[in-house]
Design a protein around this nucleic acid. Structure first.
Length: 170
DNA sequence: CAGGATCTACTTG
DNA sequence: CAAGTAGATCCTG
């Protein structure tokens, strides 16, 4: 694993790469969690991936769709989790799905709760937009890094959601 | 086998 | 309508 800091207006994120690509993106003031031997790899040729990661992050934090992503290393996830993560990449900025809807999308109706688990296991937040997955009736649901971040990201891209029973007009 | 970033139906006031 | 509960579900470690 190879780590590098990315300075943004929201603080310093940490990107963690393996030889296959970006494996983890950590919010400011949060330490990377993936230090598994299974992910140890040779030093990747960092610069292009680092630049792609940084500019994708900048765009995403402004609520825009990144033009270009670095390759992702999702090998730490189960097959089910990877399915969920890939499905999340299809959700456009500003729009949202519910855990239940996402379960439908990946052909596992009824697995809404398991989808929630997969969201929590997402190591590349912001770029893999787990914040666009809400509970039923557009309620906010949860977020591992703290609901403040989920709200901030949703507002940056002007997505509608419901907070404590009140619709939030973005 | 217990426990989640869920969901729906149902019950009460 | 609001609030609370009981089950149903299904992936994970």
């Amino acid at each position: 694993m190879w780590h590098t800091g990315i300075q943004t207006t929201d603080g310093i994120f940490t990107a963690s790469f393996t030889a296959k690509g970006l494996a983890e993106l950590s919010f400011p003031d949060r330490a990377p969690t993936l230090d598994r031997q299974s992910l140890e790899g040779r030093a990747p040729r960092g610069l292009p991936w680092q630049d792609d990661t940084a500019s994708a992050l900048y765009a995403a934090l402004r609520g825009e769709r990144p033009k270009r992503f670095p390759p992702f290393d999702l090998s730490h996830g189960t097959a089910f989790q990877q399915k969920v993560w890939r499905a999340m990449l299809e959700i456009s900025p500003g729009s949202t799905r519910s855990y239940g809807e996402l379960a439908m999308t990946i052909g596992a109706p009824g697995a809404s709760r398991a989808v929630g688990g997969a969201c929590g296991a997402n190591r590349i937040p912001v770029l893999i937009p787990c914040h666009r997955v809400l509970a039923a009736r557009k309620r906010l649901g949860g977020f591992s890094a703290g609901l403040e971040w989920k709200r901030l990201l949703l507002e940056r891209e002007q997505a509608a959601y419901v907070l404590e029973g009140n619709p939030v007009a973005a």
